[in-house]
Amino acid sequence: MTAVGSSTKVVLGGTRGGPDVATLRQDRWWVQPVVTVSILTAFVIYSTWAAFQNKNYYVGFDRDLISPFYSPCLATSCEAGASNSGFLIHTPGWFSPALLILIFPLGFRLTCYYYRRSYYRAFWWSPPACAVSDAHASYSGETKFPLIMQNLHRYFFYAGLVFNVLLTYDAIRAFRQPGLGFGVTVGTLVLVTNATLLWLYSLSCHACRHLCGGQVRSFAQHPWRHKFWKFVTPLNAKHMNFAWASLVFVALTDVYIRLVASGAITDYKLF
């Protein structure tokens, strides 16, 4: 029994009311964790498989489409035409270029406030749902290593912005069809949608909202930052939607380009 330091007398360890059970909830509280585990596990398995494939990530014949998992392609092992950068890291031919870059989008999502909520609940059961007991005997939250590293989220946000610019460039490149001129294909729309969703996910990020204007004490003294803050705040309210939509769509984009690159389907030209 320990007293909390204040003039109000508080005793810790008092007897609690109610039965000693994990939860008295009668609704299907377990549905949300199950759905989260299913989607995130499927994404991790697919993206790991795709990252190690080291093939079928670029369509360079009549089209200019690159998978977001492999862009920017910075390795000497990149397929011909896939890299637009003069900067290439020397790698052996078997090395997948995706492995050089995926840490940044992965880190951005791993430290994202919304995903933290989701995986702490679904994978770590801390807690699995509201008013359902934590699965762990002790708890220190994000005060110790490694979880204290979640505070690096804003750096991954900055890196994410760089990736968004590069993936937007990829989407613009997708309008170009080598040998045929300018046009719009299904692949173009896929890359444009992917870039749009990633921008929405980044701009709705809590760190972005803070850096835009949330960190100031007085909006009146910072009118421009107040304007930015007011722009991103409604987006922030939809952060969960953008998080899931962009996650699923980035995988679908890779699937589409992989199918086109392998010759399984043709990238249909719209106009």
């Binding site: 702490y120 509201c130 994000e142 005060t143």
Partner: peptide, 8 residues
């Protein structure tokens, strides 16, 4: 830092 933002 103890809060792990599970939003309950």
């Amino acid at each position: 830092g103890y809060c792990n933002i599970t939003k309950c």
